[in-house]
Computed example of a mutant assay.
Amino acid sequence: MFGIKRQLPIRTLVGEGTVIHGELRFVDGLRIDGEVLGDVTAAGGERSVLVISEKAKVTGKVRAGHVIINGAVIGPVTSEELLELQPKARIEGDVTYVALEMHQGATIEGELHALKTGDSPTLKLASNNS
């Protein structure tokens, strides 16, 4: 779906109970289970995956290719490929995306902006049954 070929490996983990102050840059894949107070940016652009788990919190800008959120983000989110908002996702900030999949229960307090890619942006509202 949405033209994603294969999942990139998660090479880095910010574990539960860990708090990072400052900018966090990564390549390939990153999973956050703890807290980041600063920007989280993928160096690989579209060829990256970022997972912000249910217990995680990021206060700062978030930018990656494929972004999956089930925790809290306070700041703007930019997904250069696909943004997946799981049921417990909470975003306080503007969201920019190419394709967006939003599950029931996810909330956004901000504006939605579609990135221009030549094709029209894709929006999918996912049900609890999928």
Rank of each mutant, 00 (worst) to 15 (best):
F26R: 02
V14M: 07
E23L: 13
V14C: 05
P87K: 09
P9A: 04
H66N: 12
L24V: 14
E109P: 03
L85Y: 02
S48Y: 03
R6I: 00
G17A: 04
I52D: 03
E23M: 11
A114W: 01
E23A: 10
A72M: 11
S53W: 01
G3C: 04
K88R: 14
A43Y: 11
H66Y: 15
T107V: 13
G38R: 11
V95W: 05
M102Y: 02
T117Y: 03
D33T: 03
G93H: 06
P9W: 05
I74F: 13
A106P: 05
L83F: 00
L112D: 06
E111A: 10
K5E: 12
V62W: 03
E23W: 04
G15C: 04
L85H: 06
P76S: 11
S53K: 04
I32D: 04
H103I: 07
G22H: 11
L100K: 09
T41Y: 11
M1A: 10
N70M: 03
I4C: 02
L50R: 01
G22A: 09
L112V: 06
E16W: 01
V51I: 12
K88M: 09
K88A: 09
G65Q: 01
L115K: 15
D28K: 15
A43Q: 10
E23D: 10
G71C: 06
N70D: 14
L125H: 05
T122I: 15
N129R: 11
I4M: 12
Q86A: 10
T41H: 10
L123R: 11
I4W: 01
I32Y: 03
V95Y: 00
S130R: 05
S79L: 08
V58Y: 01
G71P: 02
G105F: 00
G29S: 08
H113V: 14
G3S: 10
V51F: 12
R6A: 07
E46S: 04
V95S: 01
E81I: 04
D94H: 15
K61L: 15
G110A: 03
L85T: 06
E109D: 10
L85E: 10
L82N: 05
L85K: 07
G65F: 00
R11M: 08
G93D: 06
D33L: 07
S79E: 05
T78S: 07
Q7L: 12
E35I: 09
I4Q: 08
G38W: 05
G38C: 07
H113G: 10
V67F: 01
V98D: 00
E46L: 08
G22C: 02
V19Q: 11
V14G: 06
I4N: 05
V27L: 07
L24C: 09
R31W: 05
E109I: 08
E23R: 14
